[in-house]
């Protein structure tokens, strides 16, 4: 299982900025302290934007307030269905993703996870980003066709000395 790491400054969620979430539908299940956004989910915060088919927000159980009043603290987010994450310099796509608020680690997985910055592209099956440090790691896909689990990386010449 080969992985490629790199600095990923762009893709970070600055917690201070307001967040806008849009979707076709929002279901708030009081007993299970979670809120499920369904259909054309679109989340923007500052320069960072996330699109997905569905996003489930899990609240820390026993937290005061409630999902809808936004005062309950969020435990983690799960997104699925053609996930697309863009920050000002990087774009990442995959099938499913999770974002753990406490550890601030974002993972994106799927049959083909692509992380690109300009023309530099990393393709693998799992992207793990530590939002605090900005450190990103793409793991290759272990599969029949790609036994070695290698990560496909293409770096455009000349992009390093930008």
């Amino acid at each position: 299982q080969e992985s490629a790491t790199g600095r990923l400054q762009g893709l970070s969620i600055s917690s201070g900025l307001p967040i806008q979430i849009e979707s076709d539908r929002l279901e708030v299940v009081d007993g299970e302290s979670k809120a499920v956004f369904v259909g054309n989910v679109n989340v923007t915060q500052g320069p960072t934007m996330l699109k997905a088919g569905k996003m489930t927000v899990y609240y820390a159980s026993g937290s005061t307030g409630s999902p809808a009043t936004g005062s309950a603290n969020i435990d983690r987010l799960e997104v699925e269905g053609k996930v697309y994450i863009k920050s000002d310099t990087q774009v990442a796509t995959g099938d499913r993703g999770t974002f753990d608020m406490t550890s601030e680690v974002l993972t994106l997985s799927g049959s083909e996870v692509v992380l690109s910055e300009g023309k530099n592209v990393l393709v693998g099956c799992k992207l793990t980003v530590n939002m605090k440090s900005g450190r990103a790691q793409v793991d290759g896909c272990k599969s029949e066709t790609n036994k070695s689990g290698r990560v496909m990386m293409s770096i455009q010449p000349g992009s390093q000395n930008r």
Binding site: P18, I19, Q20, I21, E22, S23, R25, L26, E27, V28
Partner: peptide, 28 residues
């Protein structure tokens, strides 16, 4: 949102049609 339904006395609340949520984190 443009529609809403509350079920089971508020146990399940469904906002429908053009849901827009805005959260301003306290730190902000």
């Amino acid at each position: 949102s443009d529609a809403l339904s509350v079920e089971q006395n508020g146990k399940l609340v469904v906002f429908d049609k053009r849901v827009r949520v805005n959260i301003v984190p306290p730190k902000a």
